[in-house]
């Protein structure tokens, strides 16, 4: 049985893990960029960042005091034995957010957009966001939290089929350069790119690409995977490193997700997941046990609807 209480326990635990422990895949990615980095200042910054991850894990304190905007991604198996219903899950995750905010502590970042009122617990109107997805033929529930920071590093543009790949590259460069200056987007980052859909799905796909795929995991479409590689190299050849210093470390990995779109357009969004790339996942099994990991495994073949028939 997967009860509301179990969801709360798991939600609280992943909030802690996400804030404190850098995911292994991202750390490996940073170390790979470090090896390439020739510039002394940029190299010093990366070394300090790695020291910081170690300090966070050793001291059990948040790696970055801007603990981002905590949010959740829930994937529910068709056969998961839920007790407490879907609104029960939402209540549990709101409670876990408030408790973890006080205990870790996380910074209470969430305020009303107009009146700036806050409850010091990261909970409020439409916050934390909870996104839902489903998985056929399984009986578990995956709960992932992402603490994405950064007021900077995200942009959207409506391109047109005639702009082609060049248009995507141009937009990608624009975003990397403008937000990379002075390191506003806290690079080296995982860059997520959403292509297609409508404006909102385009944003959502790009954000999920940045936050919910692990470093080194390519898109299953080989041509898209090549483009990911090409854009990553392009980003690292801008001549910029962390903090906008001269260097070669902008992009730790580039992830693209696509969705069918309007025949006349090619919407594109770019998102940077900063050097505090915080995510953690719990899998709640039908027998009430919980397993923790850092790879959200969000983009399953079903999630991309690869396994759903195209015709009816």
């Amino acid at each position: 049985m997967i009860s509301t209480e179990l969801i709360e326990t798991a939600g609280y635990e992943i909030m802690k893990k996400a804030a404190i422990d850098i995911p292994e895949d991202y750390l490996d990615g940073i170390k790979a960029t470090q090896k390439q980095e020739q510039n002394t200042l940029s190299g010093y910054v990366i070394k300090t960042m790695i020291d910081n991850y170690e300090a966070a894990t050793e001291d059990r304190r948040p790696m970055c005091a801007d603990t981002g905007l905590p949010r959740y991604y829930v994937k529910i198996g068709d056969n998961a034995p839920l007790r407490g219903g879907f609104t029960g899950i939402e209540r549990a995750l709101r409670s876990a957010t408030a408790r973890a905010t006080a205990d870790v502590p996380l910074r209470p970042n969430r305020v009303h957009p107009l009146w700036r009122t806050e409850h010091n617990n990261n909970v409020g109107i439409n916050a934390p966001e909870i996104e839902w997805s489903f998985e056929p033929d399984v009986d578990w529930v995956d709960v992932t939290t992402v603490h994405k920071g950064g007021l900077f590093g995200t942009d959207y543009r409506m391109l047109f089929p005639g702009d082609g790949i060049d248009g995507i590259k141009r937009f990608f460069l624009d975003t990397m350069i403008s937000f990379g200056k002075r390191g506003l987007c806290c690079q080296p980052a995982i860059v997520g790119i959403g292509i297609g859909g409508s404006k909102d799905t385009c944003m959502q796909l790009g954000k999920q690409a940045a936050c919910l795929r692990s470093v080194g995991e390519p898109n299953p479409d080989l041509k898209i995977a090549e483009l990911e590689q090409e854009l990553m190299e392009m980003g690292n050849n801008i001549g910029m490193g962390p903090m906008g210093f001269v260097g070669s470390s902008m992009v730790v990995d580039c992830h693209i997700e696509v969705g069918y779109t309007h025949t006349g357009g090619m919407p594109v969004s770019v998102h940077t997941f900063c050097l505090s790339s915080r995510r953690a996942t719990a899998r709640l099994h039908a027998d009430g046990s919980i397993e923790y990991r850092t790879d959200p495994k969000w983009f399953t073949p079903y999630m991309r609807r690869e396994t759903v028939e195209w015709t009816s």
């Binding site: 304190r61 948040p62 970055c64 801007d66």
Partner: peptide, 14 residues
């Protein structure tokens, strides 16, 4: 003075 890499909150916390 600028902080280094910006996300180094744990080191600074120490």
């Amino acid at each position: 003075l600028t902080t280094v890499g910006y996300g180094t909150g744990a080191l600074l916390g120490r």
